[in-house]
Each structure stands twice: as structure tokens, then as C-alpha cells.
Design a protein around this nucleic acid. Structure first.
Length: 276
DNA sequence: TATCAGGCCCTAG
DNA sequence: CTAGGGCCTGAT
């Protein structure tokens, strides 16, 4: 185990922010994260974060994954102090990070997320990992399943993943996996593109529309200017910003702001706050 | 029973 | 180009 003292970092908030559907709050102060074929158990007390890593090399991966080299206090400082809604959103969610997740994993996950609820999304993803992902075991004997590569779905019947409860999204995932596995769409090329080009390329995937493409750009490609507008965000903008949201003020990191807003909406009316 | 969940595809006009 | 119907499924 390796412990770090971190500012503006909250495992609980990240877990609740809904960027990663394979991060689980174990409700005992610890969290489980599966990313690609890696597994991490982590816990947090105040600013001390304990990473269940065996080596510094492993830790390096998670440092990048959690975007620990970015100064998130600067995003908070940029929030308009006269904007009560956003100030409160940041106050509650200042421990959120924009994760640097695997491109294919995010693409598949957010294909599944559309017009769906979070608990079923998690189940769907667990199902495809168990059915198609490589079975793994940690040194401590924890069993888990890696996220399947695109090749694992290419060639399946379009409806094959209905058995994993994907519903009508089955054909989206199968067909998109085929476009990627065949090289018709190159994820490596997309990784080198700027936001507008990357988004345009992602939109060619079957089942990927504007909102999902923005999620992929933000959560995998780390294009912080991507601002996913889902049904919740749409409602907030209409309710809290009838004159229009000040996108220009937050140019270049609109997506970070979106996460603070999304997190506030997600947690509003519940506890108000998920740890600190 | 109807609505909604981090939408998108497809077809009409 | 925009508008609207349809869509798997489970929770409320």
C-alpha cells in the first residue's frame, strides 16, 4: 500500500460522479476500481489516500488515471463568486477529478449508458465483462474481469448482447466494435486529434451521438472543453441559467464545470453531500 | 399504468 | 435541417 496526501481529491465524489461505471463505493471508506485489466483497492481518510499498489510503477498508472498532476483548485478559483448555483456545486464537488480512462472502454460504456439508468448501466457492463472479459486475479486472490477488447464483440450477432441485458444497444456495441476492430475507425488516430475532429470521428460510430461523443472526449481523451449535455444538464441550464450559461467564461475547461454541475444534481435532495 | 433513466436512429416534411 | 416516433428494461 502506498499513501499520498492529496488536495482537491475525493474518492467518494469521483465514484458518485458517474464517469466510471466500474468504480464501486464499498461504503466502508474503501473503493474498488477496475480499469481495463487493472484492479485497485483504495481508501481515504481526509487528505490521505491509500492506494493498494504493490509498486511505484503501478502507482504511476493510477496517478495518471486520477489526473493527480492537474491543479483542480484553479478550476474552483475560476468559478464566478456571484454565481451561487455554481459556487455551491464546486463547494460540494471540489474533490472530483476528470479521469483519464481507456478510449475503447469509455466508448463502449457510454454507448450502453444512453437512455438508461446508472444501476442498470453498471449491471450491463459487469455482464459483458464477465461474459467476454479475461478473468483476472490479484496477488491477494481477488477475482475480477478485465474489460473486453473491441475484437471480443466484432462478429457477434447484432442481438447477441441482449443476453447481457443491453437491450436495443446490443447492435450499437456490436457494430461499433466491428468498425473499430476492422480498422475502419482508428482509435489511435482519434487519440491524436483535437476535440472537434475527434468528436466528428466518434460520431461515425453506430449508436454514438453528440452527448455520448462528448462523454468520450471528456472522460477518455481528456478534452476538457467537451461539455456533455444530457437531460439533467439541459434541465439545470434552463432552470438556473434562463439567460444562457456563461460558456465563454469557462472556455477550455467547460467539461470540468459540467462535472461539478452534474454532481450537484446527482446528489441534490439526497444527502446534499457525499463525504468530503 | 405511465414515466423516466447521463440518447440515438430513422423517416417525414 | 428540424421534429417526432420508437426503442430494451427496470425502478418508481
Amino acid at each position: 500500500m502506498i499513501s499520498l496526501e492529496l488536495e482537491n481529491f475525493s474518492l467518494a465524489q469521483i465514484a458518485a460522479s458517474g464517469q466510471c461505471f466500474r468504480m464501486t463505493d464499498l461504503k466502508d471508506g474503501s473503493f474498488e476500481i477496475i480499469a481495463g485489466d487493472r484492479y485497485l483497492k483504495a481508501s481515504q481518510e481526509g487528505n490521505i489516500v491509500n492506494f493498494g499498489c504493490g509498486s511505484l510503477k503501478e502507482l504511476d498508472f493510477w496517478i495518471k488515471y486520477f489526473d493527480l498532476e492537474e491543479n483542480y483548485a484553479a478550476f474552483g478559483d475560476a468559478v464566478d463568486p456571484e454565481d451561487d448555483y455554481l459556487s455551491e456545486a464546486y463547494r460540494r464537488g471540489s474533490g472530483i477529478r476528470i479521469l483519464r480512462q481507456d478510449l475503447w472502454e469509455v466508448t463502449a460504456s457510454f454507448l450502453i449508458s444512453q437512455n438508461n439508468n446508472i444501476s442498470r448501466i453498471r449491471r450491463c457492463i459487469a455482464n459483458i465483462c464477465e461474459r467476454y472479459g479475461r478473468k483476472m486475479q490479484t496477488e491477494d486472490g481477488v477475482i475480477y474481469h478485465a474489460f473486453p477488447e473491441a475484437e471480443a464483440f466484432a462478429g457477434l450477432e447484432p442481438d447477441a448482447l441482449m443476453a447481457c441485458n443491453l437491450g436495443y444497444r446490443s447492435k450499437y456495441l456490436v457494430r461499433s466494435a466491428e468498425m473499430i476492430a476492422s480498422g475502419k475507425i482508428s482509435l489511435d488516430r482519434i487519440k491524436r486529434m483535437r476535440y472537434p475532429d475527434a468528436k466528428a470521428e466518434l460520431l461515425k460510430l453506430y449508436g454514438v451521438g453528440g452527448k455520448v461523443a462528448d462523454c468520450i472526449c471528456l472522460f477518455a481523451l481528456h478534452h476538457l472543453e467537451a461539455f456533455p449535455t444530457d437531460t439533467h444538464i439541459k434541465q439545470v441550464l434552463a432552470r438556473e441559467y434562463p439567460e444562457g450559461f456563461p460558456f465563454a467564461r469557462y472556455g477550455g475547461y467547460e467539461g470540468v464545470i459540467q462535472q461539478y454541475i452534474f454532481y450537484r444534481e446527482l446528489t441534490d435532495g439526497k444527502d446534499g453531500e457525499i463525504n468530503a
